[in-house]
């Protein structure tokens, strides 16, 4: 019973923060809401049993990624951009996407999610033995981003 209440609170918070990210006037508050969304998402991961992924999500995504967005956004001047008049079309398309996704997964609605207990030894073994190439590519991509960030920061405006 407690897990259902926790899930209901987390689910409501996740949707509320998603709306704030998209609709808040200030970019800074939008970025802060994204950080809170990341925290709520990590709590949802922990609820399913993926505690390690939740911690990684908090450390890397919220701690590094979202904070980076937040600091960068403060550098931009806030420009109130006039939005394109496609809001209604976008709303219809998005509703159709959500309905079709729900229809696809409806047959699986009776399955219950049981909290998993993952062996970290096995996870690290699979990570280093079977997924070493994606890991290598991700590492190279991260290093490239670091170099790119430094290059752009040092570049002077003409």
């Amino acid at each position: 019973m407690i897990d259902i209440i926790v899930f209901a609170i987390l689910g409501t918070l996740a949707i509320a923060f998603s709306l704030l990210v998209v609709e808040h006037r200030s970019l800074v508050y939008g970025a802060i809401s994204l950080g809170f969304l990341g925290i709520v998402n990590a709590a949802l991961f922990a609820l399913i049993g993926f505690t390690f992924i939740a911690l990684f999500h908090l450390a890397v995504y919220v701690g590094a990624g979202v904070v980076f967005i937040l600091f960068s956004v403060t550098m931009f001047r806030e420009i109130p951009t006039v939005e394109i008049r496609v809001k209604r079309i976008a709303l219809v398309i998005v509703t159709l996407i959500a309905i079709s996704l729900a229809a696809i997964f409806w047959p699986y609605s009776n399955i219950s999610v049981v909290a998993q207990s993952i062996s970290y030894r096995e996870l690290s073994k699979v990570f280093t033995e079977d997924y070493w190439f994606p890991f290598l590519v991700t590492t190279i991509a991260l290093v490239t981003t670091l170099i790119e960030g430094i290059t752009l920061a040092r570049r002077e405006a003409r």
């Binding site: 949707i15 998603s18 709306l19 990210v21 998209v22 609709e23 951009t81 006039v82 939005e83 394109i84 496609v86 809001k87 079309i89 976008a90 709303l91 398309i93 998005v94 509703t95 996407i97 959500a98």
Partner: peptide, 11 residues
């Protein structure tokens, strides 16, 4: 759906 809406409607 909320994310897709934001991506489609913002500039």
């Amino acid at each position: 759906a909320i994310g897709a809406y934001g991506l489609l409607s913002k500039r």
